[in-house]
Computed example of a mutant assay.
Amino acid sequence: MTDIPASAAGGGAMAQRKATAVRAVSLWNIANILTMVRLLLVPAFVFLMLADGGHDPAWRSFAWAAFSIAMITDLFDGELARRYDLVTDFGKIADPIADKAIMGAALICLSALSDLPWWVTGVILFREIGITLMRFWVIRHGVIPASRGGKMKTLTQGVAVGMYILVLTGPLATLRWWVMAAAVVLTVGTGLDYVRQALVLRRAGLAGERADER
Protein backbone atom coordinates (compact mmCIF):
# COMPACT_ATOMS: atom_id res chain seq x y z
CA MET A 1 0.00 0.00 0.00
CA THR A 2 1.15 3.54 -0.67
CA ASP A 3 0.38 6.80 1.07
CA ILE A 4 0.14 8.62 -2.28
CA PRO A 5 -3.47 9.31 -3.31
CA ALA A 6 -4.57 7.65 -6.52
CA SER A 7 -5.32 11.02 -8.08
CA ALA A 8 -1.85 12.25 -7.24
CA ALA A 9 -0.31 9.05 -8.58
CA GLY A 10 -2.30 9.43 -11.77
CA GLY A 11 -1.24 13.06 -12.01
CA GLY A 12 2.37 12.06 -11.52
CA ALA A 13 2.15 9.48 -14.29
CA MET A 14 0.54 12.04 -16.56
CA ALA A 15 3.24 14.57 -15.75
CA GLN A 16 5.88 11.98 -16.51
CA ARG A 17 4.28 11.23 -19.88
CA LYS A 18 4.16 14.94 -20.65
CA ALA A 19 7.80 15.34 -19.68
CA THR A 20 8.70 12.42 -21.93
CA ALA A 21 6.76 14.02 -24.76
CA VAL A 22 8.56 17.32 -24.18
CA ARG A 23 11.92 15.53 -24.28
CA ALA A 24 11.06 13.83 -27.60
CA VAL A 25 13.45 15.28 -30.14
CA SER A 26 12.18 16.25 -33.56
CA LEU A 27 13.99 14.89 -36.59
CA TRP A 28 14.05 18.41 -37.99
CA ASN A 29 16.37 19.94 -35.43
CA ILE A 30 19.36 22.14 -36.20
CA ALA A 31 21.92 19.35 -35.65
CA ASN A 32 20.19 16.98 -38.09
CA ILE A 33 19.61 19.75 -40.62
CA LEU A 34 23.35 20.50 -40.64
CA THR A 35 24.04 16.79 -41.16
CA MET A 36 21.57 16.72 -44.07
CA VAL A 37 23.23 19.78 -45.58
CA ARG A 38 26.58 17.99 -45.38
CA LEU A 39 25.14 14.94 -47.15
CA LEU A 40 23.68 17.14 -49.91
CA LEU A 41 27.02 18.88 -50.33
CA VAL A 42 28.74 15.61 -51.31
CA PRO A 43 27.32 15.34 -54.88
CA ALA A 44 27.62 19.12 -55.28
CA PHE A 45 31.28 18.93 -54.26
CA VAL A 46 31.99 16.08 -56.71
CA PHE A 47 30.36 18.03 -59.55
CA LEU A 48 32.39 21.15 -58.78
CA MET A 49 35.59 19.17 -58.32
CA LEU A 50 35.34 17.40 -61.68
CA ALA A 51 33.86 20.28 -63.69
CA ASP A 52 35.77 21.30 -66.82
CA GLY A 53 38.23 18.43 -66.53
CA GLY A 54 38.87 18.88 -62.81
CA HIS A 55 41.85 21.23 -63.05
CA ASP A 56 40.24 24.62 -63.51
CA PRO A 57 41.29 26.90 -60.61
CA ALA A 58 37.90 28.63 -60.45
CA TRP A 59 35.88 25.42 -60.23
CA ARG A 60 38.36 24.03 -57.72
CA SER A 61 37.85 27.14 -55.58
CA PHE A 62 34.10 26.53 -55.57
CA ALA A 63 34.75 22.88 -54.67
CA TRP A 64 36.97 24.04 -51.81
CA ALA A 65 34.16 26.29 -50.55
CA ALA A 66 31.71 23.35 -50.57
CA PHE A 67 34.24 21.13 -48.79
CA SER A 68 34.95 23.83 -46.19
CA ILE A 69 31.25 24.34 -45.46
CA ALA A 70 30.85 20.58 -45.01
CA MET A 71 33.79 20.41 -42.60
CA ILE A 72 32.50 23.40 -40.62
CA THR A 73 29.06 21.82 -40.21
CA ASP A 74 30.84 18.69 -38.98
CA LEU A 75 32.33 20.76 -36.15
CA PHE A 76 28.97 22.08 -35.05
CA ASP A 77 26.26 19.45 -35.53
CA GLY A 78 27.60 16.95 -33.01
CA GLU A 79 28.33 19.63 -30.43
CA LEU A 80 24.86 21.14 -30.83
CA ALA A 81 23.22 17.71 -30.54
CA ARG A 82 25.03 16.96 -27.27
CA ARG A 83 24.74 20.41 -25.74
CA TYR A 84 21.03 20.89 -26.42
CA ASP A 85 19.99 17.23 -26.11
CA LEU A 86 19.15 16.91 -29.81
CA VAL A 87 20.55 13.41 -30.25
CA THR A 88 18.39 11.24 -32.53
CA ASP A 89 18.75 7.78 -34.09
CA PHE A 90 18.96 9.47 -37.49
CA GLY A 91 21.82 11.66 -36.31
CA LYS A 92 23.72 8.73 -34.83
CA ILE A 93 23.66 6.98 -38.21
CA ALA A 94 23.76 9.89 -40.65
CA ASP A 95 26.49 11.96 -38.96
CA PRO A 96 29.35 9.44 -39.35
CA ILE A 97 28.13 8.58 -42.87
CA ALA A 98 28.23 12.26 -43.84
CA ASP A 99 31.71 12.63 -42.35
CA LYS A 100 33.11 9.68 -44.27
CA ALA A 101 31.23 10.59 -47.47
CA ILE A 102 32.63 14.11 -47.87
CA MET A 103 36.18 13.12 -46.94
CA GLY A 104 36.05 9.98 -49.08
CA ALA A 105 34.66 11.90 -52.06
CA ALA A 106 37.44 14.49 -51.78
CA LEU A 107 40.22 11.91 -51.51
CA ILE A 108 38.91 9.78 -54.38
CA CYS A 109 38.47 12.82 -56.64
CA LEU A 110 42.00 14.04 -55.86
CA SER A 111 43.49 10.62 -56.62
CA ALA A 112 41.40 10.22 -59.78
CA LEU A 113 42.77 13.58 -60.95
CA SER A 114 46.33 12.41 -60.10
CA ASP A 115 46.75 15.16 -57.52
CA LEU A 116 47.13 12.74 -54.61
CA PRO A 117 48.70 9.25 -54.61
CA TRP A 118 46.16 6.44 -54.38
CA TRP A 119 48.03 4.87 -51.47
CA VAL A 120 47.32 7.96 -49.34
CA THR A 121 43.62 7.72 -50.16
CA GLY A 122 43.69 4.00 -49.42
CA VAL A 123 45.38 4.40 -46.04
CA ILE A 124 42.99 7.11 -44.87
CA LEU A 125 39.81 5.40 -46.10
CA PHE A 126 40.90 2.01 -44.75
CA ARG A 127 41.47 3.57 -41.33
CA GLU A 128 38.22 5.54 -41.29
CA ILE A 129 36.01 2.67 -42.44
CA GLY A 130 37.86 0.15 -40.30
CA ILE A 131 37.54 2.19 -37.10
CA THR A 132 33.84 2.77 -37.76
CA LEU A 133 33.24 -0.98 -38.16
CA MET A 134 35.33 -1.67 -35.09
CA ARG A 135 33.21 0.70 -33.01
CA PHE A 136 30.14 -1.34 -33.94
CA TRP A 137 32.06 -4.54 -33.13
CA VAL A 138 32.61 -3.50 -29.50
CA ILE A 139 29.55 -1.31 -28.99
CA ARG A 140 27.83 -3.84 -26.72
CA HIS A 141 30.81 -3.61 -24.38
CA GLY A 142 31.01 0.17 -24.37
CA VAL A 143 31.75 3.24 -26.47
CA ILE A 144 35.23 4.26 -27.56
CA PRO A 145 35.36 8.03 -26.96
CA ALA A 146 36.92 10.40 -29.46
CA SER A 147 40.45 11.11 -28.32
CA ARG A 148 42.37 14.37 -28.53
CA GLY A 149 44.59 12.72 -31.13
CA GLY A 150 41.54 11.72 -33.14
CA LYS A 151 40.26 15.29 -33.15
CA MET A 152 43.69 16.54 -34.20
CA LYS A 153 43.70 13.93 -36.98
CA THR A 154 40.34 15.14 -38.27
CA LEU A 155 41.48 18.77 -38.26
CA THR A 156 44.78 17.97 -39.99
CA GLN A 157 43.05 15.83 -42.60
CA GLY A 158 40.58 18.61 -43.32
CA VAL A 159 43.31 21.23 -43.71
CA ALA A 160 45.49 18.96 -45.85
CA VAL A 161 42.68 17.88 -48.18
CA GLY A 162 41.47 21.47 -48.44
CA MET A 163 44.94 22.58 -49.51
CA TYR A 164 45.04 19.85 -52.16
CA ILE A 165 41.64 20.85 -53.50
CA LEU A 166 42.92 24.35 -54.18
CA VAL A 167 45.32 24.78 -57.09
CA LEU A 168 48.43 25.82 -55.17
CA THR A 169 51.93 26.42 -56.47
CA GLY A 170 55.33 27.30 -55.03
CA PRO A 171 55.92 27.14 -51.27
CA LEU A 172 52.25 26.48 -50.53
CA ALA A 173 52.33 23.36 -52.71
CA THR A 174 55.33 22.13 -50.71
CA LEU A 175 53.63 23.01 -47.42
CA ARG A 176 50.50 21.03 -48.27
CA TRP A 177 52.68 17.94 -48.82
CA TRP A 178 53.99 18.21 -45.27
CA VAL A 179 50.50 18.82 -43.87
CA MET A 180 49.23 15.72 -45.66
CA ALA A 181 52.21 13.73 -44.37
CA ALA A 182 51.29 14.80 -40.82
CA ALA A 183 47.68 13.80 -41.50
CA VAL A 184 48.73 10.33 -42.65
CA VAL A 185 50.94 9.85 -39.57
CA LEU A 186 48.11 10.93 -37.27
CA THR A 187 45.67 8.73 -39.20
CA VAL A 188 47.79 5.62 -38.70
CA GLY A 189 48.83 6.46 -35.13
CA THR A 190 45.34 7.20 -33.84
CA GLY A 191 43.98 4.20 -35.73
CA LEU A 192 46.37 1.87 -33.91
CA ASP A 193 45.43 3.50 -30.60
CA TYR A 194 41.71 2.94 -31.28
CA VAL A 195 42.44 -0.72 -32.06
CA ARG A 196 44.22 -1.04 -28.73
CA GLN A 197 41.30 0.61 -26.90
CA ALA A 198 38.81 -1.65 -28.68
CA LEU A 199 40.71 -4.81 -27.70
CA VAL A 200 41.01 -3.68 -24.07
CA LEU A 201 37.31 -2.75 -23.98
CA ARG A 202 36.23 -6.06 -25.50
CA ARG A 203 38.47 -8.06 -23.18
CA ALA A 204 37.06 -6.25 -20.16
CA GLY A 205 33.50 -6.72 -21.40
CA LEU A 206 33.93 -10.44 -21.98
CA ALA A 207 35.54 -10.83 -18.55
CA GLY A 208 32.56 -9.06 -16.99
CA GLU A 209 30.11 -11.32 -18.83
CA ARG A 210 31.93 -14.43 -17.65
CA ALA A 211 31.89 -13.10 -14.08
CA ASP A 212 28.13 -12.52 -14.28
CA GLU A 213 27.58 -16.08 -15.44
CA ARG A 214 29.24 -17.53 -12.34
Rank of each mutant, 00 (worst) to 15 (best):
Y84H: 14
V87Q: 05
R135C: 01
I102N: 01
A101T: 03
I131E: 12
G170A: 13
P117L: 00
D95I: 00
K100P: 03
A112G: 11
W178P: 03
V188P: 07
P96H: 03
S147I: 04
G54A: 04
F67Y: 13
W177L: 15
P96A: 12
A58D: 10
A182H: 07
G104F: 14
T132P: 03
A183I: 02
D99E: 05
V120H: 12
A106R: 04
D85T: 15
S68Q: 10
G150E: 06
I69G: 10
G104T: 09
A58P: 02
D95R: 00
L175I: 08
F136V: 07
A101V: 07
T154F: 02
Y194S: 01
I165E: 05
L75N: 14
K100D: 12
E79N: 12
L155G: 03
D193P: 07
W177D: 15
T154I: 06
G162L: 03
L107A: 05
I72Q: 05
I129M: 13
R60H: 03
R82H: 04
T121W: 13
S61I: 08
K100V: 03
A58L: 13
A81L: 01
G54Q: 06
G130S: 11
Y164L: 04
Y84I: 12
C109K: 04
R60S: 06
D99W: 00
A81E: 03
G189T: 10
I124S: 12
H141F: 15
E128Y: 03
V161N: 10
V184T: 10
Q157N: 11
D74T: 02
D74G: 02
W119P: 14
L155H: 01
G158S: 03
I131Q: 04
F126Q: 07
L113F: 09
V87T: 13
S61C: 07
D115K: 15
Y194R: 02
W177P: 08
M134V: 06
G191A: 03
V161C: 06
I97T: 05
R60W: 02
W137H: 11
R148Y: 14
G122H: 10
T88G: 01
V123D: 12
P145L: 13
T169G: 14
D95N: 01
V185L: 13
P57D: 11
W137V: 06
A66L: 05
I139L: 14
T73K: 00
I97M: 10
D89H: 07
T190D: 06
L186P: 08
L166H: 13
W64P: 04
L110D: 06
L133R: 06
